[in-house]
Amino acid sequence: MFSNTRAILLCAVSSLGSIVAVPAFAQDFITVASTTSTENSGLFGHILPLFSEETGIEVRVVAQGTGQALETGRRGDVDVVFVHARSAEEQFVAEGYGVARFDVMYNDFVIVGPDSDPADTRAAQNAMEAMTAIAQAGAAFASRGDDSGTHKAEQALWSAAGIVPEGAWYLETGSGMGATLNTAVQVPAYALTDRGTWLSFANRGDLTITYEGDPVLFNPYGVILVNPERHAHVKAQEGQAFIDWLVSDAGQQAIAAYQVGGNQLFFPNAQ
């Protein structure tokens, strides 16, 4: 017992040493706050190694909802934010937390729902009509409810349709895209999701895309360097190198080349 206790203690203390020592070994790296949808799509796993290989800069991605990601940037806890909520991003820059916003890519939102399509959204002429049909049929709808980019896009659709979504049919999950889709599968319910997450989502159950294609469902991603004038520790040079690479030909081609099941998930649109 005695010697064992000692061994465990020694082992623990030495591991403490190695953990505390981690920052000392860290080479060039930047931290990026991005969205769960981007992380879940697997895009970063594809493009980040290419960037690191080219520049020697490691990119550490913290995946959060868009609202939380921008807040993390405001607090100065990351060097770059990479999100999809255009007006919130522009406000972030206008308030001086970000240097400038760059277009990187877009995908689109789609409405997924049970294959039986109880609200008959397949017949809708545009996204607004589809949402109205769901509300009028009282068909279950699973909402992110987390102030994320997707949630904001959904809210914009409801207000454009003149609908205040409430009632037993409207389910706010208050969680990420994946968790919301898992809920939608179980109910089953309609949900608004970005195409990237949907294509790489494995647990689809009976759900399928019931409406797509309206230009208002366009979902642009922007990338912003956190302002070093606000937070002096921001790794401006390395962060800007990442942004420059994303909007460069090499970065744009890497994004275009990422496919899941033969489908391209993101469409580069840097100017």
Partner: peptide
Amino acid sequence: TLETSRGSLG
């Protein structure tokens, strides 16, 4: 948590 959110329940 991540794999759950990706729907990779298995």
